[in-house]
């Protein structure tokens, strides 16, 4: 009996397959097997949000998601936003508003906000704060990140 599983999923728009151990977590697979190191391991127990990715439209902590559960899913990481000639509005807003300091929480924050704005294109202040609650930032005090969400929301609504 094999102790390994074959999984197939869409990763940043491309179909991918690989063999994983049943105990492997999604974050390790992304980082070690696909060299996608933007998502960070900062707590390993789903408490800080630095590993946030989007799976089938939902933001999840990839450090507590079994890689096996990626099978058949659509997975997006920050690297998937690094495609066109222009920055994604959330990323552009992060730079412009000063929402980046050390940057370690940033990829997770960006993905959480992508999810937040997809669900609610016009969030009020309280909704933004609630939406960021699971993502810890130790540098910025969140104010500039909240500014970035507001600014990105305006840009995205303007289309």
């Amino acid at each position: 009996m094999s102790s390994e599983l074959e999984i197939s999923f869409i990763l940043n728009g491309q179909a991918r397959s690989l063999i994983v151990a049943p105990s492997a977590v999604a974050l390790s697979v992304l980082r070690d097997d696909f060299d996608l190191t933007a998502a960070k391991k900062a707590c390993g127990e789903g408490e800080c949000g630095a590993c946030t990715i989007i799976v089938d439209g939902a933001s999840v902590c990839s450090c507590i998601l079994y890689a096996a559960d990626l099978d058949g899913r659509n997975v997006q990481t920050v690297e998937g936003l690094d495609a066109g000639d222009t920055l994604d509005p959330v990323q552009a807003a992060f730079i412009e508003t000063g929402a980046v300091q050390c940057g370690y929480c940033t990829p997770g924050m960006v993905m959480q906000i992508k999810h937040l704005l997809a669900e609610n294109p016009d969030p009020d202040e309280a909704a933004i704060r609630r939406g960021l609650e699971g993502n810890i930032c130790r540098c910025t005090g969140y104010s500039k990140i909240i500014d970035a969400v507001k600014s990105a929301a305006i840009t995205m609504r303007a289309g």
Binding site: R31, T37, A38, K40, I95, G103, T106, P107
Partner: peptide, 21 residues
């Protein structure tokens, strides 16, 4: 002035390589 950080782009794009990476 309000000047964005020069390392901002690499960080939002997830390209920045920390030692951990």
């Amino acid at each position: 002035q309000r000047i964005p950080k020069p390392d901002g782009a690499a960080k939002v794009l997830g390209r920045t390589q920390y030692i951990n990476d």
